[in-house]
Amino acid sequence: MLAAPGGFARSGDQPMEVVGLEQWTGIVASYRPDVLVVDVWASWCVSCIERFPEMVAMAERYADHDVRFITLNLDDPRDQVGIDWSNEFLQRIGADFPNYHLRENLTESFERLDLLAIPVVLIYDGQGEERYRLTNDDPNDQFDEADIESAVETLLAERA
């Protein structure tokens, strides 16, 4: 089952919907809010987990705006312990927005998504165009939560 935009992505009673790379492109395209925020993370990414509560809080702060938050989990599809941990974590932390798990080889995922490392936050505008790619790939230009909020505010202002 794929989550319809506005719905809560679930597979059985788990928070994460399992998807492939080809589906993922379509999923992103299916969301057309004023601003779409995609948090890319994994259970092995300590810094992803540490910053996740702020992402949940941010989603709550923007609940009255047309801003959608979704997550993409990159745990190894063979690592059921890690996947189970991620599902439990999402439930425990109240990540009540669509969460997806990519069932792909990690090396291929990084190449196809053009990522060097996670956490990464991708932010799309109302036309579905990726406008911000917030990474830690430059030691002199790493992102923080203020950068996410600034990007969201910029895109919201464009829609006003």
Partner: peptide, 10 residues
């Protein structure tokens, strides 16, 4: 090559 690992926090 594309190193694969954890992010370094500066």
């Amino acid at each position: 090559t594309r190193a694969q690992g954890c992010s370094v926090k500066y």
